[in-house]
């Protein structure tokens, strides 16, 4: 059984005019099929308005499909009495760190989830300490979240989800508002959680470099899954990606350009390290 199974999921927004009459219907998610296995690191790529955030909100029952079904651990997300189990199983981190902080002290914010779940206070303390430690924010536990940097705030948000002991974390463009340092912090924290603690990760992003650690990438366009595969398979298609408002990592773009010039470089380069190695290899042949 997959951890999350989205079957034929469709979601529509209804647009209304000033008088409330239906003006049109926007199909934000269109017949999407996705299966997420335990331990996966999934990336969902797509341009602004491609429907990726709307899709993400289906994974923990914040939205329900108008057609199709989403299953979490085998339970339909529409089942009312499973709602809190589902939200505890699949936690979510949002884009704007300021709009998801509830507490005025870091540790109180992290405790919010377990408090809602009715966890006993002694265990809440244990979970808070552990979660803050695993995102390396323990020493900030008494600080006011308002005074932290963007990267630190997002790590607190991740800790807040971890304290609910989820099996899966969905991150909706978590680095969009951060500086390079903040981005590095979040990406290494997320990768570590996936590798060391075995937490399933679903990362929504439009930064190509952030999906390199994923084992599976879904590319969305106009609400549909336009491509899927490993990062290596996906980034071979630079032209198709460009057509839907995306691009490929700089190293892949560079390799592609060199190939066009007739330089002997493989077509599945992803990282700068690989590119350097291949250029050196190729030079030695000459």
């Amino acid at each position: 059984m997959s951890l999350i199974n989205a079957e034929n999921v469709t979601f529509e927004y209804i647009r209304r005019d000033k008088d409330g009459a239906v003006e049109g219907i926007n199909r934000a998610v269109d017949e999407v099929e996705i299966a997420v296995e335990k331990g996966d690191f999934i990336a969902i790529l797509g341009h602004n308005g491609s429907g990726k955030s709307t899709l993400a909100k289906h994974f923990n029952a914040l939205l329900h499909p108008v057609e199709g079904t989403v299953f979490v651990n085998g339970y339909d997300t529409r089942e009312e009495d499973r709602l809190w189990d589902i939200r505890q199983t699949v936690g979510m981190v949002f884009q704007n760190p300021d709009n998801q902080i509830i507490g005025t002290v870091v540790e109180e914010d992290v405790a919010f989830g377990p408090e809602n779940m009715g966890v006993r206070s002694r265990e809440i303390w244990e979970r808070v300490v552990q979660s803050l430690k695993s995102v390396d924010m323990y020493e900030y536990r008494k600080k006011s979240p308002q005074r932290l940097s963007g990267g630190q705030k997002q790590r607190v948000a991740i800790a807040g989800v971890l304290a609910m002991k989820p099996e899966c974390i969905v991150l909706d463009e978590p680095t969009a508002m951060l500086d390079p340092q903040g981005r590095r912090e979040i990406m290494s924290a997320v990768t570590e959680l996936n590798r060391k603690e075995g937490i399933t990760v679903i990362l929504i992003t439009h930064y190509m470099e952030e999906v390199l650690n994923a084992n599976k990438v879904f590319v969305m366009d106009k609400g549909r899954i336009a491509m899927q595969g490993t990062p290596r398979q996906i980034f071979k298609h630079a032209d198709e990606l460009k057509e839907i408002g995306l691009t490929v990592p700089v190293a892949a773009l560079f390799a592609g350009e060199l190939r066009k010039r007739g330089v002997d470089i493989p077509d599945d380069i992803l990282t700068t390290e690989e590119l350097v190695k291949e250029i050196c290899r190729s030079l030695r042949i000459i």
Binding site: D179, A251, T272, V276, I279, C280, L283
Partner: peptide, 19 residues
């Protein structure tokens, strides 16, 4: 807390590898 462009990183790495 900043970075260098990926293009620069590539060139510096090539240089380190003797290119």
């Amino acid at each position: 807390g900043l970075d260098i462009p990926r293009v620069s990183r590539l060139l510096y790495m090539l240089k380190e590898n003797g290119v």
